[in-house]
């Protein structure tokens, strides 16, 4: 029987999007052997939504409430998990920026292997097999993990499913630990826009924009989606300094899989395609009908983006107003 521990991420007393997805993946592993899923959350205050985690598949919710967890506190979480890791056959986290930071530390502390940013988990006897995109998604690696693995599950891969579990609440004492790194705060983005990594819709621009100020055209299309779209970019325009590196999609930027991806004035270099090819629907708008981007796009429009994109933004606004 293998029980799984899921370490949940929270910020300011709210569970982070993606955090609960890992519970669904944990459920799948635990259920194969009749095991239990425990969810751990550490905060400086009561975290909203933890009482509902039973319906997400958690048998038990362990809460550590201590001032030391006002911000992300990797040393504190590693100490907490290491103390109780012996009860579990695997530890799961969501592969967010924080989860990717935490998972390797946990693995090193527990002495197990780390499966990073996995898109599939499968229990195989006393081992766990994971699938993970590597080369930014140019290839899929299947990895067999033994010992007590720490697995970072890509958000959205196992959407939280309804389940009737107890979700029993238990308080856990704060651990004894040495704080080596002190997170002092989070500066939220000045633009109240959604993050490229979390957006349902991405409007990405490339060199075809011609000038950094023309990103305004893309921002207007993104705005037409009313807060669910982010502006992304190709490496060429990030390297040219037209937009901040956080917007870059591709092998030296973010790997994304939104429901809808607009590639506008993006030629479709191999390293860019790697980062967005698992998007559900890809739309390409480009003047060059031979641009490689059209080979991966579901729908394409050949034409001047400065004519097409404003017309598209207007059409989206109309459709949304319905």
């Amino acid at each position: 029987m293998s029980s799984i521990l899921v370490v949940l991420e929270q910020r300011d007393g709210a569970l982070r999007k993606g955090a609960v997805d890992a519970i669904a993946a944990a459920r799948l592993i635990a259920d194969a052997s009749g095991g239990q899923v425990d969810a751990l959350v550490a905060s400086d205050r009561a975290v909203s939504g933890v009482d509902g985690l039973g319906t997400m598949g958690a048998d038990r919710v362990l809460s550590v409430t201590d001032a030391a967890f006002a911000h992300y506190n990797p040393d504190g979480i590693v100490a907490t998990v290491t103390d109780i890791a012996g009860q579990y056959s695997a530890v799961l986290v969501a592969a967010t920026a924080t989860g990717k930071d935490l998972a390797p530390r946990l693995a090193a502390s527990i002495g197990g292997p780390c499966g990073m940013d996995v898109t599939a988990v499968e229990p195989t006897g006393d081992k766990i097999t994971v699938t993970r995109p590597i080369y930014a998604g140019k290839a899929l690696q299947v990895l067999e993990l033994s010992g007590t693995p720490v697995i970072a599950v890509r958000p959205g891969t196992y959407p939280a499913a309804a389940a009737g579990k107890a979700g029993a609440q238990e308080a856990l004492a704060a651990p004894t630990f040495t704080r080596r790194l002190e997170v002092t705060g989070i500066r939220t983005s000045a633009k109240a826009s959604v993050d490229v990594a979390e957006a349902r819709v991405i409007v990405a621009g490339g060199r075809g924009l011609g000038d950094p100020k023309h990103f305004a055209v893309l921002e207007d299309l993104a705005a037409a989606f009313g807060g669910e779209a982010a502006v992304g970019a190709s490496r060429a325009v990030v390297d040219a300094g037209w937009i901040e590196h956080g917007a870059q999609v591709g092998q030296t930027g973010k790997t994304v899989a939104p429901e809808l991806y607009f590639a506008i004035g993006v030629s479709g270099a191999i390293q860019h395609l790697a980062g967005m090819r698992t998007s559900k629907v890809i739309v390409a708008i480009n003047r060059d009908k031979d641009a490689p981007i059209f080979k991966v796009a579901d729908y394409g429009i050949v034409g001047d983006l400065f004519e097409v994109v404003p017309a598209l933004a207007e059409a989206v606004r109309k459709a949304k107003a319905h």
């Binding site: 992300y72 002092t184 993050d195």
Partner: peptide
């Protein structure tokens, strides 16, 4: 960089 912001830390 974290989702939706920039985290600051010291050590």
């Amino acid at each position: 960089e974290v989702e939706g912001g920039v985290e600051t830390a010291t050590c």
